[in-house]
């Protein structure tokens, strides 16, 4: 598969169809993968694809990266889940279809808990089925895009995986747990987690759908969100971000992975997605022509009149 990927990358670069390949490479000791920007055909050997390719590289297609944009025509190595973000970016006018060459890669799931995985690899932990389940991201257990849905090039063997009817995995278990709580316990649960927030904004920076050039947290006239890392400011930030992603979030899981405070952001974002699914029968990231429900308003279809 890697050979296929590298050959395709070489072809794109040599033919001038792409000036830069945004893909995955190894870090120094091959314990993690890291984003690479391949500009020269002779460097395509650096491209890899494996279970550790957890990053959603679509963030580099946003306008937050003028330097990447300036490198010329972009091609990106993307898993099905990453392509969902590209789809949302397209539906929101952030990216045109012909502005990026999507090298879709079929995927068997990626490792979310890479430290636990490393222990299994070096033999200090038993990589049984149980651990394998635990270290694989919840999204992968339920993935319906292991065969990527929007690509210019498709790499890898067809996956025959069928997602379960009812979503499974830690995130959904947790959502069910929280749904059973009373409001007071829910509040305490979230305040407990938000209290650890350090306002590093890694959740925002790693997210390709947080593409605003001026985030609401950076605005101070008026100051919507207090910048201090106290409960008030942390609650405001985390809830506002969740709301801004409602109906847009594709559950790529990057925010939770990036969070140095281990705040279960997937739980809140996925809960919002479930609500959107129930209310609007909508799932984001599948059709670039369809707009997320919370960002469209059609006065003709509005049943209420308070906004008219």
């Amino acid at each position: 598969m890697e050979k296929q990927l590298q050959d395709k990358a070489r072809e794109l670069l040599e033919s001038g169809k792409a000036d830069v390949i945004i893909g995955y490479g190894w870090n120094r000791d091959k314990s993690h993968t890291t984003p690479v920007f391949i500009k020269k055909a002779e460097d395509v050997g650096k491209l890899v694809f494996n279970k550790l390719c957890v990053n959603n590289l679509s963030v580099y297609l946003t306008r937050k990266y003028p330097d990447v944009y300036a490198m010329g025509k972009r091609a990106i190595v993307a898993k099905g889940c990453d392509i969902k973000n590209i789809v949302v970016m397209m539906s929101e006018g952030q990216l045109k279809r012909d502005e990026v060459h999507i090298i879709g890669v079929t995927c068997d799931g990626v490792i979310f808990d890479q430290d636990a995985w490393a222990k299994a690899e070096d033999g200090s932990a038993d990589m049984g089925a149980e651990l394998k389940d635990a270290v694989t991201a919840t999204k992968c257990h339920n993935c319906d895009v292991r065969n990527p849905h929007l690509t210019d090039t498709l790499i890898g063997d067809k996956s025959n995986f069928t997602p379960p009817d009812e979503p499974v995995g830690f995130v959904f278990d947790k959502i069910k747990d929280i749904e059973k709580m009373d409001s007071r316990d829910k509040w305490q649960f979230w305040m407990g987690h938000f209290s650890r927030c350090i306002k590093c904004y890694a959740c925002r920076q790693v997210c390709s759908l947080c593409y605003c050039e001026r985030c609401i947290s950076d605005k101070n006239m008026p100051q919507w969100i207090e910048t201090s890392a106290h409960l008030r400011g942390n609650l405001a930030w985390n809830l506002i971000r969740a709301q801004h992603l409602t109906g847009r979030c594709t559950f790529c899981g990057e925010c939770e992975r990036a969070c140095p405070a281990n705040i279960p952001l997937n739980v809140i974002n996925q809960k919002m997605s479930l609500v959107m699914g129930e209310a609007f029968d909508y799932k984001s990231g599948y059709d670039p022509k369809e707009h997320p429900p919370m960002i469209v308003f059609n006065p003709d279809e509005d049943k209420d009149d308070f906004i008219k």
């Binding site: 890291t34 306002k199 925002r204 990036a258």
Partner: peptide
Amino acid sequence: WADMARKCIGCGSCTYA
């Protein structure tokens, strides 16, 4: 610098840790 740090996403995690 541009080559080494192109992938930096500009979060403050490293500085806060």
